[in-house]
């Protein structure tokens, strides 16, 4: 009796020790992660914010003053253009997959597999492809148009997947109700299903915007690295992320690079917040409804 009670005691102590060391490992892992995260944010902000000077935002880029304004404008143009191409395509594809295709359709499977493949392709491969197709074969040259076309293929799977999920989460009851009231398929999709899925789709689009803003590798050989705002879509121009890369590559203007990093960070943080606010509003709305 005595013996077993001692070993029980030991076992309990060992269990406690084990638990403590496991807990320590978890806290250490999470601690490292949090430290790195905060470290990056504070470092970039501390180094960059003092460099956010007025001349950084002057309208003209000169070699003495690496203004970010042209890059900002180029970013806006590229993002808008890519979205204009990819959003309708992605939404229409998802509508086909969810609303029109029959279950077990082979075509649907192929689309899903290819979309997954597209999502996994590294951005530099997109860059090379865009260079071969849009820049040389189609003769657009280094241009915002070539860059936007390349990026639109890149974000297509993001939009497709989030829209698909959003459409799937619309209850069938809505569709049946609409049909019951005499609406056709198309009317049901556009008047009933899409509006109820809109917040989910919007969150996906914003996610895509974040990716577009941060993209570099796919743009260097498609939109090029000219530091000015081009006169037309067929001109070359660098986006903000490419601008940061170019500043590093040229090895000058480190302070400007820090400031550019801050602007990128703030943009991405804003985009993320927007996306999560919309997503959470949506889930709340769903619960109430």
């Amino acid at each position: 009796m005595r013996n077993t009670s001692i070993s029980k005691d030991q076992a309990a102590r060992r269990a406690k020790r084990n638990a403590a060391s496991l807990r320590a490992a978890v806290y250490a892992g999470a601690g490292i992660c949090i430290a790195v995260l905060i470290g990056i944010l504070i470092y970039i902000l501390a180094k960059g914010v003092p460099n956010l000077t007025p001349e950084l935002f002057s309208l003209q880029y000169t070699s003495e003053n690496a203004s970010v304004v042209p890059a900002l404008l180029n970013t806006l143009v590229v993002v808008a253009l890519s979205l204009a191409i990819a959003v309708p395509l992605g939404i229409f594809s998802a509508i086909y997959l969810v609303e029109y295709a029959k279950k077990g359709n082979r075509f649907v499977k192929v689309v899903r597999v290819t979309a997954e493949t597209l999502a996994g392709i590294p951005s530099i491969v997109y860059g090379l492809f865009g260079y071969l197709l849009f820049v040389t074969t189609l003769g657009f040259g280094y241009s915002l148009l070539a860059g936007a076309l390349t990026l639109s293929i890149m974000i297509l799977p993001v939009i497709l997947r989030t829209t698909e999920e959003a459409l799937q989460s619309v209850p069938d009851l809505y569709r049946e109700g609409s049909f019951g009231l005499g609406a056709g398929k198309l009317r049901t999709v556009f008047r009933i299903v899409l509006p109820s899925a809109a917040p989910g789709i919007l969150a996906g689009v914003i996610l895509a915007v974040g990716r577009l803003v941060g993209e570099t590798a796919a743009l260097i050989f498609t939109a090029g690295t000219v530091a000015q705002t081009p006169d037309s879509l067929l001109g070359s121009g660098r986006t903000l992320a490419v601008h940061l890369y170019a500043l590093w590559n040229e090895g000058l203007a480190t302070e400007k690079a820090y400031a550019t990093a801050v602007i990128l960070l703030v943009l991405v943080a804003g985009i993320n917040t927007l996306s999560s606010v919309i997503a959470s509003k949506w889930t709340k709305g769903n619960k109430n409804g």
């Binding site: 470092y43 941060g214 993209e215 992320a241 940061l244 890369y245 990128l264 993320n272």
Partner: peptide, 18 residues
């Protein structure tokens, strides 16, 4: 959680620069 999501959104050039 949002902080980790932010980490996901930071452009790779910014990581490289850091």
């Amino acid at each position: 959680k949002p902080a980790v999501d932010l980490l996901a959104g930071i452009p790779s050039v910014v990581y490289g620069f850091f």
